[in-house]
Design a protein around this nucleic acid. Structure first.
Lengths: 139, 139
DNA sequence: CACAATTATATTGTGCACAATCTATATTTG
DNA sequence: CAAATATAGATTGTGCACAATATAATTGTG
């Protein structure tokens, strides 16, 4: 048997499984806000700096318009963001947080800490995880 | 500004991004086999030990029948697996690799090495990544 | 300036992921 | 043994991801 083909010897499978597991850990907290995990990521970006184009969001999240357009439309329907064409360049759509979306931020402040707790890793392990994963991502 | 809510300070976002990135790295190799990444994972399990129930696959992959049933049906259509009800327990569906599916294994042997290369991480980093991710997954 | 090339977003189609529910079979228990 | 319970898998519906393509606006070039 080719040992490299055993599931337990895969590096990528635990990564795939953990990524989904973590999304599950977020779910109860995000349910309270009525957000999905990718929608939460969009809100993080906009809370940090409002008014971003679809392209800018896509570059930060590594997502294309095929994913973002419908996702942003759903967020617009929830009245937490607006989508407006730029007058300077009609191709561009600018995404802005509404007052409702801005108010969610306060309720979201506790989420990172709750997630760290739910993950059950020490701060050291957490930093190591972030460092090595970020390193792998940077190539 | 609450720094904990900045995208760059998230631990989980790089994990989510890397998981998708890795799936993209697999794509060209898996395209040659006509498999998606989750389908490839199913094949890894079956190549290791043929004849597994949907439940057993689900426990190993952390997936439920809502995901697996349609996925396995697509694999059945490609003639790489069969789905047969157990006669001992009519609730159970047994998944088996066909000859066609078995032959794919040879073409797949090179994939793990190619992926390690594509990831561009040293063996040490790779082991560290696996160890810490597996540790986080085990809780 | 016309036209070719580029850019930004949208659309279409496929395949997961997962919650919620359903169905059929098996097991437990009174 | 019959009714209650549990289990295995299937179904339905929603929301990503992402490839491929389309559309419309902008920019570059002869």
């Amino acid at each position: 048997m080719n040992n490299l083909l055993k599931l337990e010897n895969q590096v990528c499978f635990p990564l795939y499984a953990l990524s989904r597991e973590v999304t599950q850990l977020y779910r109860p907290f995000l349910d309270d806000l009525g957000l999905t995990y990718p929608q939460y990521l969009v809100m993080l970006i906009l809370w940090e700096e409002n008014q971003q184009t679809v392209n800018q969001l896509g570059e930060k999240l590594y997502l294309d318009s095929g994913t973002l357009t419908p996702l942003l439309k759903r967020m617009e329907q929830k009245r937490i963001i607006t989508r407006t064409r730029s007058t300077a360049d009609e191709r561009v759509v600018i995404i802005s947080v509404t007052d409702i979306g801005e108010k969610m931020k306060e309720k979201a402040t506790c989420i990172p800490a709750k997630l760290v707790e739910a993950l059950g890793l020490s701060i050291d392990d957490l930093n190591q995880l972030k460092q090595i994963v970020t390193k792998a991502l940077k190539r």
